[in-house]
Design a protein around this nucleic acid. Structure first.
Length: 536
RNA sequence: GGCCCCGUCGUCUAGUCUGGCUUAGGACACUGGCCUUUCACGCCUGUAACACGGGUUCAAAUCCCGUCGGGGUCACCA
């Protein structure tokens, strides 16, 4: 209460009051990349100012499986390290944090708005409103409800009810003057009250609509800064009207630009996947993820497996810090050179004043670049545990990998180095785990490197004998062994190494040849060469 | 269409408030080159932008006006 009075007394930016922000998703079943960017900025702003970040669930249009539809959102936020001080699972002093459970508050607020004359009961049917709207449109005039079925007295209520009508509650919006808001991102923004509508805030059955619920909750939960996406900018007048009519202090607003499609300024949407796939970079990002999902044997559900959704990145093994860092720079920058921020640096440096006003396009390439950067920062010991679940799920190893498999994975990760960009990339090295007689060959590579050159078989056979007699089988020794062999035969190393790679891995590409052979071991290497030879 | 917002390299951006320090800087991507057994990494290098038009000023990406372009939003959705 003291906090609220303080807020009334002086503008927020002047006070030392605790900053409280909120992210208020509706349970849609997925966490949108643009939505999470908004959540991140809200979180950052609260953390920066030592305040609280509240998670509230806007489920006023009560969907059936709220729990199920909410889980991906909560999991996604947690995965990215965006924790909430109050909200689902943690609760808090302003519980409940689900709008579906706060009905009485909204009903009371509607009642109070009615009593103070800031709202009225309206008995118009949807059709009647629609007819007015169309009439205005045909006359090329701006639509404004005539208030024809507004109840001015108990007698009106009775009369309309006698006609079998039901009442919604509408805002009685001002008809002249201006509303000025000082947006923390966009600066001063003005609206004419005359272009606002008498919005419905409560349905005939008494259920609340979004704007009422949102304003009431923001107040009840002590939200000081409403940080949200730009699409809400034009909703602000009606919300300010509600807040002020209810005697609430006006929160500070900050409208963030939305995240745009790759290569365009349209708002990024989960539903336009087909369109985005026409963008080469986006398609590549998707294809990479799909290849991993396929190897894992997962069903690729068009509805959820989508780079617009945060789950996509977690599923294929991206690093949350890479995603967060990328998102941070989508619409915000510190200066002209700093690009990498750890959590502490983000919190330390974040400010709404440096948020850009123009929408920023989602750039798959840049996202991948951040992922590579953070992955390369990690030592092999840190990457191996990340990679194990993928190897296990794909059936490369037991689940979980046994001690030998773990060791082998560690060696693979070390040898692969920066070739492993996301954890799921470990599946590129499945050939280390397949039985020697079940190795599959890339047909093209087999043709090019083994069948076509007439000396390939002979060279391989000769080297296989060397391998059999090799005193040790570590990468350095193998390196020396092959170079000596090459010199003795008077050939270029390229003449045998490609054939060797295809014969032992089935692939045209891979990491260092000698690391590959060393990890494979003497028995497998020889068995694979023999088998390849027999297939030529 | 009304209202509102936005407009610097292909993309993310610095610079705009407080005009000169800017031959407009950085990053990603892309060119070419080096390295090299493939792939990848790394290193070097190059291309590339102030939407347009008028003002104001000794001086404008920066201030003013206009134009054009893009987007958001106009629900008994959130």
């Amino acid at each position: 209460m003291a906090v609220r009075r303080l807020a009334l007394a002086c503008p927020v930016e002047m006070t030392e009051m605790t900053v409280r922000t909120r992210f208020a998703p509706s349970p849609t079943g997925y966490l949108h990349i643009g939505g999470v960017r908004t959540a991140l900025f809200c979180w950052l702003f609260a953390r920066k100012h030592g305040g609280q970040f509240v998670l509230r669930i806007d489920d006023t249009d009560q969907q059936r499986n709220v729990d199920e539809a909410l889980r991906p959102i909560l999991d996604g936020l947690r995965w990215l390290g965006i924790d909430w001080d109050e909200g689902p699972d943690v609760d808090g002093p302003h519980a409940p944090y689900f709008q579906s459970q706060r009905g009485e508050r909204y009903a009371a607020a509607a009642e109070s708005l009615l009593a103070s004359g800031h709202a009225y009961r309206d008995y118009a049917t949807t059709e009647e409103i629609q007819a007015e709207r169309e009439a205005a449109q045909n006359a090329k005039q701006q639509f404004r409800y005539s208030r024809r079925w507004m109840a001015n007295s108990p007698e009106d209520d009775e009369r309309f009810r006698a006609e079998g009508r039901e009442a919604v509650v509408r805002l009685k919006m001002p008809t002249d003057g201006k509303l000025v808001i000082d947006d923390l991102v966009r600066g001063r923004v003005e609206f004419d009250w005359s272009s606002e509508q008498d919005h419905v805030i409560q349905r005939a059955d008494g259920s609340p609509l979004y704007h009422l619920a949102s304003v009431v909750d923001d107040h009840d939960m002590g939200i000081t800064h409403v940080v949200r996406a730009e699409e809400h900018l034009s909703n602000t007048p009606r919300q300010v009207f509600i807040a002020e009519a209810l005697g609430f202090p006006r929160p500070q607003y900050a409208h963030l630009p939305y995240v745009a499609e790759p290569g365009s300024k349209n708002k990024l949407s989960k539903r336009k996947l087909d369109k985005y796939l026409k963008n080469a970079d986006f398609a590549k990002l998707m294809a990479h993820g799909e290849a991993i999902a396929r190897r894992l044997g997962r069903a690729i559900e068009a509805d959820t497996f989508n780079p617009v959704i945060v789950d996509f990145y977690r599923d294929v093994g991206y690093l949350p810090e890479a995603i967060v860092n990328y998102l941070l720079l989508l619409g915000w920058s510190l200066d002209d050179k700093t690009e990498f921020f750890d959590r502490a640096a983000m919190v330390e440096n974040f400010s709404l004043a440096r948020v850009n006003k123009a929408p920023a396009s989602f750039d798959p390439q840049k996202l991948v670049a951040f992922q590579q950067h953070y992955m390369h920062q990690l030592a092999a010991e840190s990457i191996t545990p990340l990679v194990e679940p993928y190897a296990a799920e794909a059936g490369m190893t037991a689940a979980p990998p046994n001690a030998d498999e773990q060791k082998k994975l560690a060696r693979i990760v070390t040898a692969a180095g920066d070739r492993i960009t996301v954890a799921g990339d470990v599946l590129d090295y499945g050939y280390f785990f397949t039985a020697d007689d079940a190795l599959e060959y890339d047909e093209k590579a087999f043709e090019k490197r083994l069948r076509k050159p007439d000396d390939a078989a002979d060279l391989l056979r000769g080297f296989a004998d060397e391998l059999a007699a090799a005193p040790s089988f570590d990468a350095a020794s193998l390196d020396a062994l092959l170079h000596a062999y090459v010199e003795r035969r008077g050939i270029n190393i390229g003449q045998i190494i490609h054939a060797l790679r295809v014969a032992t891995t089935g692939q045209a590409v891979g990491f260092g040849m000698f690391d590959t052979l060393a990890i494979l071991g003497r028995e497998s290497t020889r068995a694979r060469i023999e088998r390849a030879l027999s297939l030529i």
